[in-house]
């Protein structure tokens, strides 16, 4: 997995409340957008990303580590571990918010991706997103837990109206707001040539999907793609913090030797 990442304050805000953590040894990548202003937002998103990576690392070392919260049917253990880590992060932030008196609106969104074998496990809460760019098509894999997204889903307003709505900043789910949180998880096939993008709303509010797809198509490397996405979003206004994690899986044009290597490995194991 080739990884590129860039996080930027943008051109309007004074601090960057987005956080990210890359744990390539676990094939785990997380991004969080804090809220609550000033130190609270920064602290919330940092707590979220750190707690999640720590919990997954602990589980890697000790597979018997308890899974926090209820088991989600229809997805594998790795996805369930990710949900467990996010529930734990929720409690950490909730506790931190309570310690501050519970009135500061402290909270965070989260989007986390973990790759194993043939698939990507994606978990999220709030309006940070995961996209899959495959065959030159950009697909949003997560559904925002936001007021306008819920309205669109129920057919009350159109996507276009949602883009103009003044309610865009209102979330229906976030970490740290209540004692417990519902985590949404999904799984996607991982194919050679795939690019996965994790981003905060500062990116997709400035750039349309065709614009994002255009940047991902043009960039030659994951880091170049992440840099270019953030630069374009800043150019378009940079109204919020912008973070992009770009994950590219073994481009089809490269890695002929590794293909041969894999073929030999497959031949040795004709199960």
């Amino acid at each position: 997995m080739e990884v590129g990442v860039r996080s930027d304050t943008g051109r309007v805000r004074e601090n960057n409340e987005d956080s990210f953590r890359l744990a390539p040894e676990l094939n785990l990548f997380v991004l969080s957008d804090g809220m609550g202003g000033l130190e609270s937002g920064e602290r919330a998103s940092r707590l979220a990303t750190e707690t999640i990576v720590a919990h997954c690392r602990d589980a890697q070392a000790d597979a018997t580590l308890a899974v926090f919260g209820k088991h989600i049917e229809g997805v594998n253990d790795v996805s369930n571990r990710l949900a467990s880590a996010i529930r734990l992060a929720n409690q950490e932030i909730f506790q931190a918010a309570q310690d501050l008196g519970g009135k500061g609106g402290m909270g965070a969104t989260i989007v986390a991706a973990r790759f194993l074998e043939d698939r990507a496990c994606i978990a999220h809460v709030g309006d940070s997103r995961a996209y899959l760019f495959r065959d030159e098509q950009l697909n949003q894999l997560t559904e925002d837990h936001s007021f306008v997204a819920e309205q669109v889903r129920r057919g009350i307003i159109t996507l276009e109206q949602a883009g103009r709505s003044r309610m865009q900043n209102v979330l229906t789910r976030a970490l740290g707001v209540e004692q417990n949180v519902d985590v949404e998880v999904t799984e996607e096939l991982l194919r050679e040539g795939d690019t996965y993008l994790l981003c905060s709303d500062g990116l997709f509010r400035e750039l349309s999907e065709p614009q994002i797809a255009g940047v991902l198509l043009e960039a030659t490397g994951a880091q170049e793609a992440a840099d270019s996405l953030v630069e374009h979003a800043n150019h378009a206004g940079g109204g919020d913090n912008i973070t992009a994690i770009v994950l590219r899986y073994a481009p089809k044009t490269a890695g002929a030797m590794s293909k041969i290597g894999r073929w030999f490995k497959a031949s040795e194991d004709p199960s």
Partner: peptide
């Protein structure tokens, strides 16, 4: 408030 993300 201006562009601040909030919970409902």
């Amino acid at each position: 408030k201006i562009n601040e993300t909030v919970m409902l």
